[in-house]
Amino acid sequence: MLSFHHHHLPAHIHLALFHPVSHAAQIRARIVRASQLEGPEGDAEREAVNFAFIDARLITSTLHLQTAIHQAILAEAQGALRTKTVHSEILWALSPNNNITEAIRRFGVSDNTTALIVVRVGSSGIPDIEHRMKAIATGDIRPLSDLSKLTDWATVKKYYKLNADPAMKAPGLSPEQQKLVADEIVVSTVAMKSVAA
């Protein structure tokens, strides 16, 4: 697990990449249930799932993830969140269009998710944060450098509508170069989400 903060931002970030994840459907069901529970029991359950759950297959690079987290925290710091929490804001920032439900469905945990990034944006002193993450997501915690091996490029290209882009069809582009180009478009799309046309 990684814990860090940006010098210019108030929030601390804790994140971990879980892979392989075999029980994504249960995680999703638990999050849905937490939102429906009432009373103190509900509050406790909501706290237990108070993370951003990101499908790692749709992340092209650490920079992609960093950019989404950064823009989400920036929006929160400015009181300009477009979704209800900073965690959902990360998912929304990742999505190339403005539909929040679709952002969560696509970039959040889904029933067939096998690699999961769990992010907590909050204060520095959350006790047992790693323990809490492991209480929800099972699977091994992998270094973020594994992200590039997990990327599902076909889906990334579909969601970010890269297939129609002349940049991807440029002649003489090796598969590796094409990934660099795609990653750059994806990162830039996330970074400029707040002003997208």
């Binding site: 823009q71 920036l74 002349p166 940049a167 440029a170 990162v187 830039s188 400029m192 707040s194 997208a196």
Partner: peptide
């Protein structure tokens, strides 16, 4: 700021070599 970011992303998608965008804070 928004206009500049939009011009850059359009260039990127068209395969023009331009610097990628890393953050935007219009406020």
């Amino acid at each position: 700021v928004a206009g500049e970011a939009r011009a850059i992303i359009k260039c990127l998608r068209h395969g023009v070599n331009v610097p990628g965008i890393r953050m935007v804070d219009t406020a």
